[in-house]
Simulated scan of single mutants.
Amino acid sequence: MEFIKPKVKICCISSVEEATLAIQYGASAIGLVSEMPSGPGVISDELAFKIAATIPANIASFLLTSKQNALDIIEQQRYVGANTLQIVDRLTHGNYKDLREALPGINLVQVIHVNNDECITEALKVAPDVDAILLDSGNQNLPVKLLGGTGRAHDWSISRRIVELVNKPVFLAGGLNPENVSGAVEQVRPHGLDICSGVRTDNKLDERKLEAFFQQVNSFR
Rank of each mutant, 00 (worst) to 15 (best):
F3Q: 03
I4L: 12
C11A: 04
S14C: 08
S14Q: 15
V16A: 11
E17Q: 14
E18V: 06
A19E: 07
A22G: 07
A22V: 11
I23R: 05
I23L: 06
Y25F: 15
S28I: 01
I30Y: 03
I30N: 04
I30P: 05
S34L: 15
M36N: 01
P37D: 11
P37E: 01
S38E: 04
G39F: 05
G39M: 01
I43A: 10
E46V: 15
L47Q: 13
I51Q: 10
A53I: 01
N58L: 14
I59Q: 09
I59M: 08
A60C: 06
T65Q: 09
S66P: 07
I74T: 01
E75N: 13
R78E: 14
Y79E: 10
L85Q: 01
I87P: 12
V88I: 12
V88Q: 08
R90C: 12
L91M: 06
H93L: 14
L103V: 02
L103Y: 11
G105H: 09
G105A: 05
L108T: 07
H113Q: 14
V114T: 01
C119D: 11
I120G: 02
T121A: 14
E122R: 01
A123W: 00
A127T: 02
P128S: 04
D129M: 13
D131F: 11
D131C: 07
I133Q: 13
I133R: 13
L134K: 07
L134W: 08
G138H: 10
N139H: 08
N139A: 05
N139T: 09
Q140Y: 12
Q140K: 14
Q140W: 13
V144C: 12
G148K: 05
A153S: 15
S157F: 07
S157T: 15
S157L: 12
R160T: 10
R161K: 15
V163E: 03
E164S: 13
V170H: 04
F171N: 00
G174S: 05
L176R: 06
N177L: 03
V181D: 00
G183T: 00
G183F: 03
G183P: 03
V185L: 00
R189M: 09
P190K: 00
L193I: 02
C196E: 11
V199A: 03
R200H: 14
D206Y: 09
E207C: 11
K209N: 11
E211L: 12
F214D: 12
Q215H: 13
Q216S: 07
S219L: 01
